[in-house]
Design a protein around this nucleic acid. Sequence first.
DNA 1: TCCGATTTGTACGTATGTATT
DNA 2: AAATACATACGTACAAATCGG
Lengths: 252, 252
Amino acid sequence: METDMLPTIRHSLTDNVKDELMRYIRRMDLSESTKLPSELTIAQNLGVSRITVCRVLGDLEQENVIFRIHGKGTFVNPEALQIKISLNPAQEFHQLIERSGHRPQVKMVRMEQDLICPGIAKKLALAPDAPLLRTEKVYYADEEPAILCFNYFSRAVFAEIPSWEEFENTSAFFLLRERAGRVMMRDRIEMEAKEISELLPLTDQVKHFNCKALLQFDTINYDQNNQPAMYGLCYYNTNFIRFNLLRNQNIY
Amino acid sequence: METDMLPTIRHSLTDNVKDELMRYIRRMDLSESTKLPSELTIAQNLGVSRITVCRVLGDLEQENVIFRIHGKGTFVNPEALQIKISLNPAQEFHQLIERSGHRPQVKMVRMEQDLICPGIAKKLALAPDAPLLRTEKVYYADEEPAILCFNYFSRAVFAEIPSWEEFENTSAFFLLRERAGRVMMRDRIEMEAKEISELLPLTDQVKHFNCKALLQFDTINYDQNNQPAMYGLCYYNTNFIRFNLLRNQNIY
DNA sequence: TCCGATTTGTACGTATGTATT
DNA sequence: AAATACATACGTACAAATCGG
């Protein structure tokens, strides 16, 4: 059976140009100059049309990797290259921990198969009394608890419910994709700050977190048909996981 | 004297098309269908070329307002329209409070003109012993404290330092623009969760916050030349200000 | 002050490819 | 298999901002 697990290789021209430009940017000596060659020069060097280069530069500008000044040129934004943990796009927890400079580990703490919870069922667009599947995992950074994560699914999404070991060793995104045919495309998160004691009713795992407050992400994950397929409640110890975000500002 | 305060009116074709499309989307009955007309139809209706429509749709897709399915059509993402407080782009605090359904108020709490703080001077790309200007403001939502905000500037950015009243009644962005010629274009934020007692050394204002933990944004604001012009330390009571964010997911 | 040269910004027309129905 | 609809790419043209002479 072929699973086609890897992200499909993109070979559109813009993607190639984007990769090539990013390689160029990373090799630049930014302390000397942050100016990129002109669009025309880039286009000629890469053997593509200017409009293609222009689109790529537009994308990179929206990602704040570069900024353009009309009539002057295109410049690298050095800030963007320093960021290790970006809020956007979503990243795997293991990656988050690794990129913040620690060794990641997971422990599955609990698993429930017949939870009834109308509030969460509603977020998943299910009937209020639909049975839910819930997992609780703790992610460690160098033995220290760094992320606490609850995932909720409709019990019916999986024809056969994955085992404890599968949940522990595999990301929920992968399981949803491979075992339920649901590919997560987007998520919507809502952010809150919580003090440890506020979370004790939820789980006693928080007692092991070496901090006083946690960053809470209330997340709904949507699949390829824009249907909610997973609800997540994630708590980050911001001493380990410190999200960064570059924003454009339109304030006057 | 003409201040030219208002955001310059955009009248590029893509902006018009975007506004027109957004109006169309907001008037749609999404419970019936979320499908938009085809690119060609939109182009013909608006009297523009298909490529222009395509670019606008691409922008809206990146903002998660719509999503497109190859060969099938373009669809509205109803989630995006429900979001009141988005993390992206940056918004004025008054707006944040208003959009979360409360009446906003500000109080200037403190102002210091000759602060020496090497750590913050470094973030502002200043000499370690450069004198800093600091303001402390509290924003209220219906009389309840909702946001605590410290702003740091180089004392030298303002030829004449704005008065207490000006700082209280005007946004720092406006003052920087009008009194220092620095237009804020981007910011970089780093997020942490803090328990109230951790913040007491900073200010006793936190005692009045009716919550146990605050969401901290550590923010550097960059001007039109990509130079840091303001450093901000902002604390949000997430019972009032609840940021939402739509993300694309590339997890496998 | 003005005038070109350079560079980005915007828009159109056209063509081809690919997925869905 | 055909029609429809999105995806990508090229060439061209002109506008607007910046900079140096």
